[in-house]
Structures are given as structure tokens and as C-alpha cells.
Computed example of a mutant assay.
Amino acid sequence: MNFNTHLKNFIFRVGSGIANRAKIIAPIDTGNLKKDIQVFDDNINNFEVEIGNTKLAPYAKFVHEGTKPHVIKVKKMKALANKKTGQIFGKKVNHPGIKANPYLLNAADDFLGSLEFEKAKDRLAKDVENEVLKDIKASLKVK
């Protein structure tokens, strides 16, 4: 292994820790939001990971960032209705907006202050130390 591999492992470990915390604190309605939180490591070679949701929970952005008050209008149906309560609203409704619930940012803050993060840093330091020692031993030559 080399230093880059250890750093990539560390970054993925941190991303996974944040994702796991987000799954604990994310709000639940259908469960899709929690189930869908993932670590995206497409750019791990650039030492980057992203934590977020896929299209399984297309409303994730609105939950995380909130929405301003807005009007919802009928597109195909005759009236708007609440599926859970069966309440019918009519052809348009003034939605009051949604308060932001930044569960991903909160999870990152929580994880970065945790013992689990400290252990991940210690593991990275130990891995790097072992690589340095291995390189030093390999460079020693007896004449």
C-alpha cells in the first residue's frame, strides 16, 4: 500500500461514518430518505467523497434545505389531495413552506466531533507511520 491508498481509505471511512450518522438523524416518513443516504466515491482518486441521496428520494433537497412559501397547482388531476388524510384542497393551495432540516450537515458536525472520527485519524496516522518505517527500512543499505 502507499500513502494515497491510506488517505483514500480514511476519506471513505469518514464519509461512511457521516452517512451512518445521517441515517440515524434523518427525518422519517416513508423511510426512503434514510434508506437512500449513500457515500458516492466516484472522485475518490481526487480524494473526494460525497454523501447524499439519489433519485429514490427526489425530495431530499427540499427536506435538507427547506422551501419558501409557494403555490402548488393541479397539473393532471381535478384537485389536490392529501393521500394520508384524504383531505381535498382544490385546484391550487398556498403551501407555507418547509423548515430546513440539514440532516447531512448535522451528521457531519456530529461525526467530526466523535470518538469514531478520532479513531479514524489515529488509524490513518498509524498506517502512515508504518509506511514511513517500511520505506526507511527499504532504503537502508549495508556497504
Rank of each mutant, 00 (worst) to 15 (best):
E131Y: 13
S139F: 14
T5Y: 13
T5Q: 14
D36C: 04
K76V: 06
G113E: 15
A79E: 13
K78G: 15
K55M: 08
K68A: 15
K61S: 11
K119W: 02
I18G: 08
I37F: 03
L7P: 05
E118A: 15
K84P: 01
N82D: 15
N82A: 00
S114R: 04
I51R: 01
A60P: 01
Q38T: 07
I44Y: 01
R123Q: 15
A26T: 03
A19R: 01
K34I: 08
D135C: 11
K126N: 14
A125E: 14
I136Q: 02
K134Y: 13
K119N: 11
G86D: 07
F62C: 07
K8E: 14
S16H: 03
G113H: 13
H64S: 04
D122W: 08
K143F: 13
K91L: 02
A120V: 06
P96F: 00
A81I: 03
G52M: 00
H70K: 09
Q38C: 08
D42R: 01
G31R: 02
A81D: 02
D127M: 09
R21G: 01
I72T: 07
A100Y: 03
T67Q: 00
G66D: 08
L133W: 12
E116V: 05
I37E: 00
H6K: 14
L140P: 00
F10Y: 13
I72V: 15
K141P: 00
K78C: 03
I136E: 11
G15P: 02
T54V: 05
L33A: 02
V14W: 06
K73C: 00
I28E: 15
H6P: 04
D36R: 07
L104W: 05
